[in-house]
Design a protein around this nucleic acid. Structure first.
Lengths: 196, 196
DNA sequence: CTAGGGTGTTACCGGTCTGTAACTATGCAA
DNA sequence: TTGCATAGTTACAGACCGGTAACACCCTAG
């Protein structure tokens, strides 16, 4: 039996997990590879044996985040099998929970704010992962029988995205406190219109 | 006659203006003081005679941004004197214009994403300036005779904030294209409810 | 027992970062 | 002309950055 998932896992996994946590808390440019490897209980050489550069490590961290987000969608389906409308409401609750979880916003959005080079490898994966998220929410809304599913999904997306940066700038007592009310009101409103 | 506002202004003003531009384009941690002073046509010593540290320069840049934002509100009042509802719609148009202006989001939000130290001097001014913006929009909505002015203002704020980060992550062709429609729809909807 | 792959250690490279010291040049005002 | 504030120049300190070289150390598979 392994005594601690983080401590006794392979160095590559520890590095990835530690980097994800530190990038999230302190920003990408705010963390050096030395700090990551030390926190992961390893060293710089081992990092560069598994990742060819810091940029590649960043990309892998973002992909790992996306994988966790994908698991979230699967959890909705598992909790409310077939009931797409319930899953939409579950998404709202999950989003609200994230807002109060910590004062840091979305890792993808934060990375996009930091990595300004237009051809940075991370920008590509950020874009495609955000588009995948959007597609899943659109599909969910559509399958829930809501008219104008794209518009509702986009509105909910922007509200959530905005709430995350609002938490980061003014804290949890700002406009983001109204997020659930806004989202639920919108869903009701859109369900009132034509339902395909 | 001075031949160029930027070139012949005082060094302090040139540094401030140049820093604002470069922080906006490349991020705060992505720009060094050497690069700023060189682009401003001066040198590092002069910068440190006018600003006691890079952090103080950052704070001054954020304050300058807020001053420009304040001028925007005054422009609304000048264009539609007394007509608060028209000013709300002017805000929507202005916000939409900002979305397509460039792919970079709000400087305050980006700074908050980069400067993660909880006691960083910039975090205080970011919070108070964001709260001031929110207060102005709430007041405008209330004076426009809209019921639930706070809720509408917060919703519009989150939508705009979210649209700015969406532009930064997936570009101008993403959910942000629907911003005006969402905002106008919300205003109509809120005007339909009780009007005080 | 042995061979080899994964890992750890130390030292280093060249570059960049914020911030400072010491000195020189300029322009304006009395 | 003298005096002074402002600005420019060069050089540097001390720290950190991403990334690499060379070598010693396991642990396990054969």
């Amino acid at each position: 039996m392994t005594d601690g998932v983080v401590e006794r896992s392979r160095p590559r996994d520890r590095i990835l997990e530690t980097a994800r946590d530190m990038f999230h808390k302190h920003g990408i440019k705010g963390v050096g590879v030395d700090a990551i490897t030390e926190a992961a209980g390893t060293n710089k050489m081992t990092l560069y044996r598994h990742f060819e550069s810091k940029d590649e490590l960043i990309v892998e961290c973002l992909r790992a985040n996306a994988a966790k987000a994908g698991a979230m969608w699967d959890a909705f389906e598992a909790e409310f099998p077939g009931d797409k409308l319930a899953q939409v409401h579950a998404w709202v609750r999950k989003a609200a929970a994230m807002l109060n979880a910590d004062g840091r916003g979305c890792d993808m959005a934060n990375a996009a704010a930091e990595l300004t080079e237009p051809d940075h490898p991370a920008r590509l994966v950020i874009k495609e992962l955000k588009e995948a998220q959007r597609a899943r929410l659109v599909t969910l809304c559509r399958d829930a029988g809501i008219g104008q599913a794209e518009l509702l999904a986009d509105t909910l997306s922007l509200l959530f995205e905005g709430a995350r940066v609002s938490v980061q700038t003014v804290g949890t007592e700002g406009p983001s406190t109204q997020f659930v009310r806004m989202a639920e009101g919108l869903i009701v409103s859109f369900r009132g219109t034509a339902a395909g």
